[in-house]
Design a protein around this nucleic acid. Structure first.
Lengths: 280, 280
DNA sequence: AAAAACCTGAAATAAATTTTCAGAACGAAA
DNA sequence: TTTCGTTCTGAAAATTTATTTCAGGTTTTT
């Protein structure tokens, strides 16, 4: 996995026409060392020196010199082209999915509002109990989250069927938190449940990958993850992973908070769990 | 092994006093990247620009620029393990978790046997039905996988409680596949279920993060993911993600296989799902 | 259709690298 | 110790390379 090329792909859509020529050249010459000088590269890319400097800056380098050095540093790693096609072996697909996940994480870091994650974590930390709901693959995200939160010492539960979700919502009290997970942000039952909870004074959080979606209106705190349309199919693999890392970061934060109160994942407890092999 | 340093040592005796200062600096700063400019380095070595150029030429480079690039290329990409500490903000934790996930993917790609993924995919593709079992966070991996496999057009089911797992196993037939997910590879109930199935001629696959673990003995095909010990706690966040990307790659492969038979994720079906907002 | 925002490359400027060269340091021979 | 020749060195000049600026062009917005 070549980080420079991945980053190039990540930022490709934000580039101008001429900058894209530079990007294209880089992507199509993965193994190559950069030609020694900026002028040479400018000529190869049919672009200008200034454009190349701008390109390097966009990727986060101080200038062309730094880019050149980093490209040399990434050398031997072979690059995997992004789109999966039907002749790929399973392993090639795995490589592409890992790349895709990396890009999705990068997009998530740019999309999510840091203050909102903090607010969500603090809300969960001080909540009476936390309920997570989602459908389909979002149900397993919700389940995973509940699992981890509970482990970290917080009362958390997840429900994957719409009846149970509504029942759970109706038994929540002020001071509790309801977290709705929905990639589309439009799953009717989830939105309804959040709306119902909100009307009763219960705090609501959503984790979604779609900006300006219905679920956002029903949520006190919005955690917006990778919003890139998935090109392939509704399997939406990498966005699923992005939602998980957001959960994981909340979870870690909560672990540390709880450790301060002495109710966290303490040694003894964890060793207990491990000896019973419930560590997964 | 750093070739440039070796070469420096080889030629050390032929160098002048000032050139040796450059050599000494290089040898005593093996990990470092070269400072950006030749003047900076000259100052650090208490020497001059021209001496450095001569030094670079002696090692066989065309000049300082080439030396700089090659040093960068030889740099051991020592990865800084981003340990999370208690003063990190939620967003910082998110960044570290993403890094950790990236590393975990890299490890998984190195650990997993490409031919085993292919074998697993083919087994699932030709199986009557596929059952996935796991406990704790592995249960949500299993659930997620079943969800996706089913979506891709394969009969797949997951069970998260030990009774149901055993019942399901006992109703499986030859030609079916049982997939056990277990990070430790030692969860007694999962291992037992696989053993039982295997004894009845059912194909077994395991997805585990622990080499030489009990579950491997009961599995026809082993998918070994990131085996790095998690330093933090048994939350084992990133290894969880690694297991998911393995699932995802199987799943993608199966989608393509099914498309060939015309039973895959076809447009119409997917649009249908989308219009009902069950795309997650 | 006008205005604003943005992208681009030629040229000017700045910075880094390489070369040149005069003198210092060392060694061998007288 | 002196003298000559060789090698090594660094300051400064020359050259190459990188960066910034700016005016003109393009696209987007209003």
């Amino acid at each position: 996995m070549n980080k420079i090329i991945l980053k190039t792909q990540l930022l490709y859509s934000e580039m101008g026409k001429s900058e894209k020529k530079v990007a294209d050249w880089l992507i199509s010459h993965p193994g190559d060392n950069l030609p020694m000088s900026i002028s040479e590269l400018a000529e190869l890319c049919e672009s200008s020196e200034s454009t190349i400097v701008r390109f390097a800056r966009r990727l986060g380098f101080s200038g062309y010199g730094e880019l050149k050095i980093c490209v040399a540093g990434e050398q031997e790693k072979k690059v995997v082209l992004p789109t999966i096609n039907e002749n790929d072996s399973c392993f090639e697909i795995l490589e592409k999915i890992c790349n895709d996940a990396y890009l999705s994480f990068e997009r998530t870091k740019r999309t999510i509002a840091p203050e909102n994650i903090a607010a969500a974590a603090n809300l969960i930390a001080s909540a009476g109990k936390t309920v997570l709901i989602g459908l389909g693959s979002s149900a397993s995200v919700a389940q995973d989250a509940a699992n981890k939160f509970l482990r970290a010492g917080y009362s958390a539960y997840s429900y994957g069927d719409t009846h149970m979700q509504m029942i759970a919502a109706s038994h929540m009290k002020e001071g509790d938190v309801l977290i709705g997970v929905s990639q589309s942000g439009a799953s009717k039952d989830i939105v309804e449940a959040l709306k119902f909870a909100k009307s009763r004074g219960i705090s609501t959080i959503c984790i979604t990958g779609t900006d300006k979606s219905p679920i956002m209106k029903q949520s006190d705190i919005v955690l917006l993850t990778d919003t890139e349309e998935t090109k392939h199919s509704s399997l939406a693999l990498s966005s699923h992973l992005s939602r998980l890392v957001v959960i994981d970061s909340l979870c870690y934060y909560l672990v540390y908070r709880n450790e301060e109160n002495g109710t966290g994942l303490d040694e003894e407890n964890e060793n207990n769990l491990r000896s019973k092999r419930v560590n997964e």
